[in-house]
Amino acid sequence: MKTQEELTEIVRDHFSDMGEAATLYVQVYESSLESLVGGVIFEDGRHYTFVYENEDLVYE
Rank of each mutant, 00 (worst) to 15 (best):
E5L: 08
F42A: 00
E34W: 08
S31C: 11
T23H: 12
E30W: 13
V11N: 02
Y52Q: 00
F50D: 01
E60A: 09
E30R: 05
M1A: 10
T49S: 06
E34I: 08
S16D: 05
F42W: 03
E43V: 12
V58K: 12
L57S: 02
M1Q: 09
I41C: 13
L7R: 02
E34A: 11
S32M: 08
E9A: 13
T23V: 13
F15V: 02
T23Q: 09
K2G: 03
E43A: 13
T49W: 12
S16C: 14
V40K: 01
V37F: 07
L24I: 14
D56F: 14
M1F: 11
D56C: 15
E5D: 08
G45F: 11
V37R: 13
I10M: 08
Y48R: 00
V26E: 01
S32H: 09
A21K: 11
V26P: 00
T8W: 13
A22I: 14
V11Y: 03
Q4L: 15
F15K: 01
M18Y: 08
M1Y: 09
R46G: 03
S32V: 09
L36V: 06
Y48C: 11
E30C: 15
V37Q: 07
D17L: 14
L33R: 12
E6F: 07
T8F: 10
S31L: 11
Q27Y: 15
S31G: 09
R46T: 07
M1T: 11
A21H: 11
E30A: 07
V40H: 00
E20I: 14
F15G: 02
I10R: 07
M1L: 11
S35W: 11
D13V: 14
V51T: 07
G19F: 10
V58R: 13
F42G: 00
V28F: 14
D56I: 15
E53T: 10
E55V: 07
D44Q: 02
E6S: 05
Y48K: 00
E6T: 06
E9V: 09
Y48Q: 00
E60I: 13
K2P: 09
F42S: 00
E55I: 08
M18G: 04
E20C: 15
E20V: 14
G39Q: 10
E6H: 06
T49I: 12
E60G: 06
D44L: 08
A22M: 14
V37Y: 07
G45D: 01
I41K: 04
S35Y: 15
Y29T: 03
A22H: 12
D13S: 14
F42N: 01
Y59K: 01
G39C: 15
L7A: 04
V37H: 07
D17H: 15
T23D: 07
V40G: 00
L7N: 02
Y52K: 00
G38K: 01
E43T: 13
G38S: 02
E43G: 10
E5N: 07
E53P: 02
E55S: 12
N54E: 04
S32E: 11
D56Q: 15
E5Q: 10
V51I: 10
N54W: 11
S35C: 15
G45R: 01
Y29K: 01
T3G: 05
G39I: 15
E60P: 05
K2A: 04
D44R: 02
T49H: 13
H14T: 05
H47W: 10
G45V: 06
Q4G: 03
V40L: 05
M1N: 10
E43M: 11
V40P: 00
H47S: 04
V11A: 04
L57A: 02
E6Q: 10
E6V: 06
E55Y: 10
R12M: 11
K2C: 14
T23G: 03
I41D: 00
T3F: 06
L36W: 07
L33I: 10
G19Q: 04
V58N: 06
E5M: 09
V51D: 01
D17N: 14
E55P: 03
N54C: 15
M1E: 06
Y59S: 02
S16F: 09
Q27R: 05
D44W: 13
F15C: 12
V58S: 09
L33W: 08
T3I: 04
G38T: 02
V58H: 10
E34M: 09
E43R: 11
R12F: 07
G39Y: 15
E6M: 09
R12K: 08
F50C: 08
F42R: 01
T49N: 04
S16A: 12
A22Y: 15
L24H: 01
A21D: 09
V28T: 07
F50P: 01
S31F: 11
S16E: 05
V58F: 10
E43C: 13
K2L: 10
L24T: 00
T49F: 12
V51F: 07
G19C: 14
T8C: 15
D13K: 15
S16K: 14
L7I: 09
T49D: 03
N54L: 08
E55W: 10
L57G: 01
E9R: 14
Y48P: 01
L33E: 07
L24M: 07
S16L: 11
L33F: 09
Q4R: 10
E30P: 04
V37E: 03
E30I: 14
E9W: 07
G38F: 13
Y25G: 02
